[in-house]
Design a protein around this nucleic acid. Structure first.
Length: 478
RNA sequence: CGGGGCGUAGCGCAGUCCGGUAGCGCGCUUGGUUUGGGACCAAGAAGUCGGAGGUUCGAAUCCUCUCGCCCCGACCA
């Protein structure tokens, strides 16, 4: 009897820490705060990459690579940027046993290194827009780390685009948010998120506007699930990136940057799943269907394995694993794959072969279904879509059930008291930065997002009582 | 940086108080019986006790120093 996982409802943090390692997703690296992503976890990331990469390319972005080392003086060129990132910077001060004349920053993000280069690529409006995306890792010194959610080095993509006008840059950063990220979270990850803007205080250092998607995790804490920034001409001015417009006048370009990291993996794990373990959203699940062959005698073994292999071939449009491990009972395998979150289990044994059928079991509901071989393909297709819809609906219900309209600061404080998450708190806010900061200090909740679709509604700031024109979303966040 | 915990076999731990030549469970290997919801029996393999120095006839155990990791707070994708 294997030991039980901690219960998700009783000890969410411990559930998360254990499942990540037990399901073979990731492990701790040797250096503090670093992460080893194991094949099962990396496969999930690869599926995320594939989904997003396609959408970025549909929006014209092309992949490139920029160096990990950035002369530290570059980082200092944009004032807000350096202030925002210096606490997180890793510095390389020596190479080949010699102290470097100028230290290198290990990229916390590539705005500075990109901007210092593309100025030479852009001379006229004919060179615009310039649309780049980088798949790389970046490095941020962190005091407290957690696998996938916050590590000193993490994988991500960072898009960087350059446009003729502020409006065009704005439209592009919104398009990526909606057509790539939001589409991904809803249609691939089965994860409902709130789309909107960050406050001035929470926005990216160096951005005019930061757009974001905020998810609500199983413990009621919010997680910033990606960001997309309209950088305006802030970096263009710092790095002097100008182009000749149609009227032969020099103008600063407007730029964007946008990123989604391996934190998305954490979001998926923390949203779906139960006390049995993970629940991978079907469209990006590393394994969509696992075949567990069942036999008693050796004489049965061959026939069952052959049938299983035939089924695997028939399902080659899907990511299918045949669990032919010897010496493990079927019951053990059921539990093992349930823990790893494989959406569908297919059982096949001698009785099924006789009847030309298989058994399909859904991970989300536990429902068991006998399916004639002739209908298998249709059934698998339908079931995967169905599981996706169920996961989304469940997560949406959880989000709705944990979203609260709060009109008094007393209630705000009550809801944010204690250790756990507080859900999404919809409250009026005056728009003042100091007031926002005070709310965080007094309640530990931060302003997560100003939703695009908020209703216009006059009200009074939940803390100071000044006028407000709509509700914003507060939460305790990761 | 503050607070807490922990480094002993791949993993989880006992042994440390009171020094005497390293043990348990899981996992692993081999053989056999099993196999439709976490199988069982038997025989094995596996550890410079985080590191350095010291005390001692003798150190996982006592002393000094050191390194690392995890968890909880302040900063953050």
């Amino acid at each position: 009897m294997a030991d039980q996982l901690p219960s998700r409802s009783e000890n969410f943090a411990e559930w998360y820490n254990q499942i990540v390692q037990r399901a073979d997703l990731a492990d701790y690296g040797a250096a503090k705060g670093t992460m080893i992503i194991k094949p099962y976890g990396y496969a999930l990331w690869e599926n995320i990459q594939a989904y997003l990469d396609k959408r970025f390319k549909q929006h014209g972005a092309k992949n490139a690579f920029f160096p990990t080392f950035i002369p530290v003086s570059y980082i200092h060129k944009e004032k807000e940027h350096v202030e925002g990132f210096s606490p997180n910077l890793w510095l390389v001060t020596a190479g080949g046993g010699e102290t470097l004349e100028e230290a290198y920053a290990v990229r916390p993000t590539s705005e500075t290194t990109i901007n210092s280069t593309v100025g030479n690529w852009i001379q006229s409006y004919r060179d615009l827009p310039l649309l780049l995306n980088l798949w790389n890792s970046c490095f941020r010194y962190e005091l407290r780390t957690r696998l996938f959610l916050r590590t000193s080095e993490f994988l991500w993509q960072e898009g960087h685009t350059f446009h003729a006008t502020w409006d065009e840059a704005d439209a592009y950063s919104r398009a990526i948010l909606n057509d790539a990220y939001l589409d991904f979270y809803i249609n691939a990850a089965a994860l409902p998120v709130l789309a909107g803007k960050k406050s001035e205080r929470e926005k990216f250092p160096g951005a005019d506007i930061t757009y974001t998607l905020e998810g609500l995790m199983g413990d009621g804490r919010a997680l910033q699930s990606c960001t997309s920034h309209n950088l305006g001409s802030n970096f263009a001015k710092s790095f002097d990136i100008r182009y000749l417009n149609r009227s032969n006048e020099l103008e600063y370009v407007a730029s964007t940057s946008w990123g989604l990291s391996t934190r998305a993996v954490g979001a998926i794990l923390m949203t779906h799943g139960d006390d049995k373990g993970l629940l991978m959203p079907p469209r990006i699940a590393p394994i969509q269907l696992v075949i567990v062959p069942i036999f008693r005698k050796e004489s049965e073994q061959q026939a069952v394995l052959e049938a299983a292999k035939r089924i695997q071939r028939d399902l080659d449009n899907y990511r299918v694993e045949l669990d032919a491990r010897e010496g493990l009972t079927p019951g053990f395998k059921y539990n093992d794959w349930e823990m790893r979150g494989v959406p569908i289990r297919l059982e096949i044994g001698p009785k099924d072969i006789e009847k030309n059928q298989v058994v399909l079991v859904r991970r989300d509901t536990g429902e068991k279904k006998f399916v004639p071989l002739a209908h298998l393909l249709d059934e698998v297709k339908q079931m995967l879509n169905n599981i996706h819809d169920t996961l989304y609906a469940r997560a949406k219900k959880f989000q709705d059930d944990n979203t609260f309209i709060v009109d008094s600061y007393e209630e705000f404080k009550e809801r944010t008291a204690g250790e756990g998450g507080a859900g999404f708190l919809l409250a009026h806010w005056c728009g003042d930065r100091d007031c926002e900061e005070a709310i965080q200090k007094e309640t530990r909740a931060t302003l997560r997002v100003i939703p695009f679709d908020r209703v216009k509604e006059t009200g009074k700031c939940v803390r100071c009582g000044n006028a407000s024109e709509g509700r914003v979303v507060f939460a305790k966040a990761y």
